[in-house]
Design a protein around this nucleic acid. Structure first.
Lengths: 219, 219
DNA sequence: ACAGAAAAATACAGTCGGTGTAAGATTTTT
DNA sequence: AAAAATCTTACACCGACTGTATTTTTCTGT
């Protein structure tokens, strides 16, 4: 048991093997996104990607168990975002205020996680049923994680639906605003234009929830 | 153009062919649900269903283009439910009031569309990633239809995100309550027990939105 | 530096959902 | 009864994904 401590490097695995692994993974991912943007997600086969990266088909599915994984990156970050915003809220700040602040800050930074992913990527996602379904699933996981964070923050029991209801409302607003950014992106607006529109609309949308959740999960 | 009026029967197509078609479709659906309940959705193949119904595999996929269609019935009814409740609201009634009334009435009737689908069916859905994903998609379509109904009812333009926001909040409450019914069903509670719990919880959840949407889309 | 251990990449065969097509069977129409 | 429309079937195929055994590459210990 203790032998492991001496043999493994706890921090930086900088061996040739790890390097090549990262390179191979990156190469596959790059070729895949190129093909996806060029000819669409559904019309690109895994065999094509394998050929383009000059590896075996099995190597592709080893690194990326599902085809969607080749297109949607930073999934964990996206899923954990709202829960993290609540966990990191300032003292005296409500969950609503923290989530509004996090969204407005993401808009100001034109964060891809908030929906600023560029026209090509956005088109790729919205044109593919598979990717749209996957994205919806991520929104759902994000809402679940938020509900758990809210339950923890308010000390609610597992039988109380209040955290899940609040998470549905707050996550719902986030989801609507995400889609709004997508729509404006597809309509050809630039990121700064979109950010300007969204700042106002987000304030209004979160404001709708103010009377319902003003004091909910206040730190 | 006018010839069609004399050749087609506008109401009841009672030919032998139509009858057999309905029978075949029903037979396939019955065998499928039997197998799904018995051994789970994912562990049942379309070929198995075809064998059980003593038809060709292609006949199954002709009637049911997607495997999920064999398990999830009344999809249109589900999707249109919320929009219909708004469209049919009484004069002077707000969208929120109409949707709360519709949900409480569905609870009182233990409507499967509201989530009262029985333990076996509920287990089948929740245990299958495919069906859970499909159900999430139906919730989404339902929310979209509601947003469109609200936009129509309030005369909002296509650029206004207010209907979509309201639809997300109202649909979100419905979705949380649906899941609540699923959870209680899986926990072994009887339908009357669940209905009693839900009547109270639904009133509270919709009440949360009262200050935000009390006068929205009032007829 | 070299042999053996560990791990990655590959080839291969297979499962399952889903599609296209052409031939055969059944019902409807004339 | 013949002809047209339509349902069913067999068959071959595609693409995502899995399992396994084999080969290649990298790492380790002496």
């Amino acid at each position: 048991m203790s032998a492991r401590v001496t043999t493994t490097k706890p921090t930086g695995p900088t061996g040739l093997r790890e390097t090549k692994k990262r390179e191979t993974r990156q190469l596959i991912s790059d070729r895949a996104t190129g093909l996806f943007i060029e000819q669409g997600f559904e019309r690109t086969t895994i065999a094509e990607i394998a050929d383009a990266a000059r590896v075996a088909k099995k190597t592709v599915t080893n690194y990326f168990p599902h085809k969607e994984d080749l297109a949607l990156d930073h999934q964990d970050e996206f899923v954990a975002g709202l829960a993290h915003a609540v966990a990191a809220r300032e003292s005296g700040e409500s969950a609503l205020a923290a989530l509004r602040r996090a969204f407005l800050s993401a808009v100001a930074a034109q964060d891809p996680v908030a929906g600023f992913a560029g026209p090509e990527f956005t088109r790729m996602v919205t044109e593919s049923p598979t990717l749209s379904t996957c994205l919806r699933g991520l929104h759902d996981q994000r809402e679940d994680a938020l509900a758990e964070a809210l339950a923890g923050a308010t000390g609610a029991t597992g039988d109380d639906i209040t955290p899940r209801t609040a998470a549905a409302l707050l996550g719902g607003v986030h989801r609507v605003l995400f889609r709004r950014i997508q729509d404006l992106t597809l309509a050809g607006r630039t990121n700064p234009e979109i950010a300007a529109v969204l700042a106002e609309e987000a304030t209004r949308a979160f404001g709708l929830l103010e009377p319902a959740l003003a004091d909910y999960a206040r730190a």
